[in-house]
């Protein structure tokens, strides 16, 4: 697809989501909100996984740190949206900047292991630093932000539009990033590090910046998540969350931004709708994964693309 048509498809998808939202009953609307937020998270991981070729198993750390920042600041210190957003993004980015220094040295399995370990460190903090994080109980009752608009964000529909706008901005920013010369450099590194190095690219710096930027956008999703869910706990930073996000990217199609968004939406709805009809919903989710691996190893979107060629 050409760039124009991609942008058109993206805007259509967003407009469609925005258009159907008022007609949705409350519960599907909250699921759609959740899908939009998780989509940002999955896209942020894809900048690292799909475009740079670095599979991170600790991505929930940045997501969770931003969510915790919002949770703690808004409940304990009554900080508003601007303060929470700023602190959340700053902390997520700073953590990614620190972890990146440690993780970027490694590649392949070793990169997986280091990111896994770093993710566990954050989980351990969330779980054990009880005076700050309330430990296992988590932080409940995170209030929705007030923007000074006539619509209160505590209602599901205005909050959905708030999340949609933030997600659209994040999507656009990531879209610009991966198409920029810098983004093309990342793809080059994914294909062959040694050639990029021979061409005079600073491979380390490219990877490091991709890592930090990816952490920043995970932070965006984390801030939204804390407001959406009203609850932040160790489950948000645990390994399962990181793995699930990896699966969303793999399911949708790594190396595209729409793919992870699609994967995230699929998984959110599969998880919540299928489980209504059967207790064996994990079996169905497993079958979907296996199906994708067998018949669409490049993800759902990747499969369409290959057919188009």
């Amino acid at each position: 697809m050409t760039l124009d048509r991609k942008v058109f498809a993206g805007v259509t998808a967003l407009a469609l989501a925005g258009g159907v939202a008022p007609f949705l009953p409350a519960y599907p609307l909250t699921l759609l909100t959740q899908a939009v937020i998780v989509a940002v998270f999955a896209m942020s991981l894809d900048v690292l996984l799909g475009y740079t070729g670095l599979p991170s198993l600790g991505h929930a750390a940045y997501f969770g740190i931003a969510a915790y920042a919002v949770g703690i600041l808004s409940t304990e210190h009554q900080v508003g949206l601007a303060g929470c957003l700023g602190a959340g993004l700053l902390l997520a980015t700073a953590t990614a900047a620190l972890f990146g220094l440690l993780a970027i040295r490694a590649t392949g399995t070793y990169f997986l292991m280091i990111t896994l370990a770093l993710g566990m460190v954050v989980w351990g903090l969330a779980f054990r630093w009880v005076s700050m994080t309330k430990g296992d109980n988590g932080i409940a009752g995170v209030p929705r932000p007030e923007l000074g608009l006539p619509w209160s964000l505590s209602a599901p529909l205005p909050f959905f539009y708030f999340a949609l706008v933030v997600a659209a901005l994040a999507w656009a920013a990531m879209g610009v990033l991966v198409r920029s010369p810098f983004g093309l450099g990342l793809r080059g590194i994914r294909e062959s590090e040694s050639r990029m190095r021979a061409l005079g690219y600073s491979v380390w710096l490219h990877k490091y910046l991709a890592f930090v930027i990816s952490g920043f956008f995970a932070g965006v999703a984390g801030v939204l998540w804390a407001y959406y869910n009203g609850f932040v706990g160790p489950v948000d930073v645990q390994l399962v969350t990181s793995v699930e996000t990896l699966l969303m990217v793999a399911l949708g199609g790594p190396g595209t931004l729409a793919g992870p968004a699609l994967g995230a939406t699929l998984i959110v709805f599969l998880k919540n709708f299928v489980s209504v009809y059967t207790k064996r919903w994990l079996l169905i989710l497993g079958a979907v994964y296996i199906g994708v691996i067998l018949w669409a190893p490049r993800g759902v979107l990747g499969a369409f693309r290959r057919d188009a060629r």
Partner: peptide, 11 residues
């Protein structure tokens, strides 16, 4: 598309 979306949103 946007107009359509906004129109639907009004309902």
């Amino acid at each position: 598309a946007l107009v359509l979306g906004a129109g639907l949103a009004a309902l």
